[in-house]
């Protein structure tokens, strides 16, 4: 299926958000996630089913002022 990952079209067969994160190499990474504008806590990723056209955001710490 096709989703929107960090604003770009992305094809995946991951069924859950947790699976998507793991496939992207984020299994142990310091990240936060949101699906369709709602923040999904790390503990809730495995129960979060992905659907076509979902808008997924994966963010990490960055330099800031």
């Amino acid at each position: 299926m096709k989703i929107l990952l960090n604003g770009e079209a992305f094809a995946t067969d991951a069924k859950t958000l947790d699976e998507l994160c793991a496939r992207l190499g984020f299994a142990d990474a310091k990240i936060a996630t949101a699906v369709n504008g709602n923040v999904i806590a790390a503990v809730a990723r495995s129960a979060t089913q992905l659907a076509p056209a979902d808008e997924v955001e994966i963010v990490a710490p960055r330099q800031g002022g």
Partner: peptide, 16 residues
Amino acid sequence: VSLRRESARALAGQGF
């Protein structure tokens, strides 16, 4: 600090 979209290739946030 801030937060920004993380790229699976660069993983820039992790080192920071």
